[in-house]
Structures are given as structure tokens and as C-alpha cells.
Design a protein around this nucleic acid. Structure first.
Lengths: 224, 224
DNA sequence: GTTGCACACTCATCATACAAGTTCGCGCTG
DNA sequence: CAGCGCGAACTTGTATGATGAGTGTGCAAC
């Protein structure tokens, strides 16, 4: 049992909402109905509904009732671009990506399916096609394609939420250091991407991990 | 004026909390005092306090009163606990943590300083002290201590944002499967933690990485 | 000095009542 | 018959009083 009655009612209603018994947009039972259903006083019912409202699960209209809201299942993670200020932050972010993405590459090597192949190859060719303008976006698209190939939505969500930041910041903060203007630079990045993609598509997790680590490690050195 | 009275009381109390008039740890006025102060009924006061509690601003203890909590500092990442539904999600989350945390352990091995040692050892002993109740929290505290030792705030933020979810979900969704009731289970987890901590504190990144991977891999198997 | 207990204070819950907003149908009017 | 008004019924919002249960305190007995 719960420590409080209202907590029990909250749990019960939450289950029904998350299980789909109470679809988004549908009306919750009225307070008096809930009183009967859970055999508690109206005080408890009102407290429970208040908590659901505070969590953004329902919305109450005076004189009409409470209605289930559509929970925006956008992404599990969200980043604030303003969270990155200093050069050290960018370095730390790259260290962070090394850990996350090298493992993602290894997972992608073992978990990818046929449907993942085309996006990866598309991202590769898109990088060569992209001029100086869209190079960073194309770079990121490749990394995102690898993340998708893991079949693990957390990698996709995390990288997806990192994306806008990675695209915005190198330009504004680092100036020319990270700019993709150098042709030889672009070519080297492309070769590194090729190595990662080859290992992933070959199903070789250790090589894929090493290739991604090498790629991001090189990027880190270039920015430093 | 607000549309409802309770909203006005919520706004008033929130102002005082955020302005520092009600410092973290201090006690809120009792319900009867708030009734006088805002000239509303207990019903309204209770609803207002309920909403503050749902927002994580205060905590209420039966028979003592409500107390202001330390406002959670904004982190770069945020997770919605409702984003995890199915058993497969929990599996994917563990795969995700394997990638992130094994690298964090390696980074911690090379980057940790003297100030990081005490929290790690404290978390270790805290896990043995914790009964069946706080085992999950203590487990998580250890992982967070490792993340801090990396000196990379992104690892700390990410793990910190994952924390509440990891603590909440195994209980509700997985039932007994992940519960820490088994004594031998607890002992094994503790030994794995010891291995991770030893490698980190010894400054051996490869061993630390392997130990953390082993630990989370084992956890994954236990939950499956 | 320590122990034990009564008492005051707190939140949790219940029951009841009334106020205020919404919906719906019924009857009246044209 | 069409349209309008109006009230009955239902909803949430607020008020009030009472009781139960957990916590802390001070005083009295030992």
C-alpha cells in the first residue's frame, strides 16, 4: 500500500492513462464517480487530480471536468544550447561524444538491419556533395545515421538533442578553427567516415568502435 | 488576480521560495497559518501545497510540516520518466548506459583528483549500509560519483537526468525482477562496484572500462 | 538524571454544504 | 414549426467542522 491514499489514486489513474484506458482528449470520471470507484473522500480525489494536473497529464475546466492531455513524447532528452559557453565546454562535449558514439558504432555494427544501410551510404555521399556551407550538417547527418542503426532510441534521442548545438557552436565559438573550408580537411574527415561506415556495415563492432574513436579523437585534436 | 484562489497561493509561495524568503530546508508556515495569511480556506491551502509538492519544490512530513527543498539546478539534459514504458525500453536504456558509463569509468580513472576519492568510497560503504529500501538509490549514488570523477559535466548531467527514471521504473514496471531483496544479489553488485572503484582509483582506464561494462552487462542479464 | 506520559501541534482524511460554471432539454413565444 | 429563454442537473471550486494519526515538548514521577 501507499503511504497516503491520494498517492494510491494517483497511481491508479496514471496506470489507466499510460495504459491507454483513458485516451488523450477523453474525459476523466467526475470527482463523485472517482469517489465511488476508489472509495475515498472527495478531498483525496481532488488532491490526486491536482497532482496529475501539476504533472501535465490532465487539464481541468471549471464546470466541465478533467481531460487527459496528449503527452508530447518528443524526445527523452533535451539540451539547452546556452549550456555550452567556453572552449573547455566544447572539449568536454567532444570527450562525451567519444564515449557515447564509439559505443554506438559498435552497437550499430551488430544491430543494424537492411533498412539502415541506405541512410548511412546516403549520408556518406551527401558529405562529399555538400559544399562548404552544409558540411557540418552533413557531418552530423552521418553520425545520426549511425545512431539510428543501433536500433536503440536513446542513442538517437541523445544525439538528436545534441545536434543543433554541435551545428551552431563550432562556428560561433571556435571561428575558423573548426570550419570546413580546408579541402584536405574535408577529405580526411570523409576518409574517417568511410572507415567507420565500412566497419559498421561489415558487422565488426571492435573495428567500428575504434574507427569512431579515432575519428572523434582526431576532431578533438583539430579543434584544440 | 488568478483564475483560482489556489493558483494565487501557489504563486505567492513560489515567489517567496525562489526569492529566498523561504530558504531550502526551512519549514513552511503551517496550514492554519497560511489560512490566516492568505485569507482562504484550508482546502485552498492544501491544494496549493499539493501542487508545490508535485513540482518538487517542497516535501511534506506527516505531523511535522512542509519543508522547502533545494531547487534542482538546471541541467543540460532532461528526461521524462513517462518516456519509458516497456520492458524493451528498460533493456535499451541499459545498453545505452553500458556505452556511456563504461567510457565514463575510463575517463574517471585518468581524470579523477583527490576530491573525488572520498565520495566514491562513501558511495561504496553507503551501498552496504543501505537496507532493501535505499539500495537502488545507493546504487545510483555510486554511479553518479564515478561520473563526477570524470570532471566532465556532461556525463554528470546525463546521468543525473537519468537518475530519477532509473530509480522509479524498475520498481513499478519490473516488479520483483529488479528488486534488491536478494542478499546474494546485493553482494554480487557490491563486488562489482568494488572492482570498478578499485580500477578507477588505481588510474587504470582499460580495467575500469571493462569492470563497468561487466557490471552493467550483468545487471542487464539479471533484469532480462 | 532518566523515564513516561499527557498535551499541543502538525498533516491526512472524511462529510457536508454552498458557490460558480457548463450542458441540455423543455416549454414558451413568435 | 423554429427559435429563444430559462431552469434543472451536473460539473468543478471553495468553505467549514470534525476526527484520526504522527511528532515534538515539557512536566512529573521515580
Amino acid at each position: 500500500m501507499s503511504s497516503t491514499l491520494s498517492a494510491a489514486v494517483v497511481a491508479g489513474l496514471k496506470d489507466k492513462i499510460l495504459a491507454g484506458d483513458l485516451a488523450p482528449g477523453s474525459k476523466l470520471p467526475s470527482e463523485s464517480e472517482l469517489v465511488e470507484e476508489y472509495a475515498v473522500s472527495r478531498t483525496v480525489v481532488r488532491e490526486a487530480v491536482t497532482r496529475l494536473r501539476a504533472e501535465g497529464l490532465v487539464e481541468t475546466q471549471h464546470g466541465r471536468g478533467s481531460f487527459v492531455l496528449t503527452v508530447p513524447e518528443a524526445s527523452s532528452f533535451s539540451v539547452e544550447a546556452s549550456a555550452i559557453r567556453t572552449h573547455a565546454d566544447v572539449m568536454a562535449m567532444l570527450d562525451f561524444r567519444i564515449g557515447v558514439e564509439s559505443e554506438a558504432a559498435a552497437l550499430a555494427a551488430t544491430h543494424h538491419t537492411e533498412v539502415d544501410v541506405a541512410p548511412i551510404e546516403e549520408a556518406l555521399s551527401g558529405f562529399t556533395r555538400a559544399g562548404h556551407e552544409g558540411a557540418v550538417e552533413a557531418d552530423f547527418a552521418f553520425h545520426l545515421a549511425i545512431a539510428r542503426a543501433t536500433g536503440n532510441r536513446f542513442y538517437v534521442d541523445l544525439l538528436g538533442s545534441l545536434g543543433p548545438m554541435m551545428i551552431m557552436l563550432p562556428r560561433t565559438r571556435l571561428g575558423e578553427a573548426y570550419s570546413m573550408t580546408d579541402a584536405t580537411h574535408v577529405e580526411r574527415v570523409q576518409r574517417e567516415h568511410d572507415n567507420v561506415a565500412a566497419a559498421v556495415l561489415a558487422g565488426d563492432p571492435d573495428t567500428a568502435r575504434a574507427a569512431m574513436r579515432l575519428h572523434l579523437g582526431n576532431t578533438r585534436r583539430r579543434v584544440t
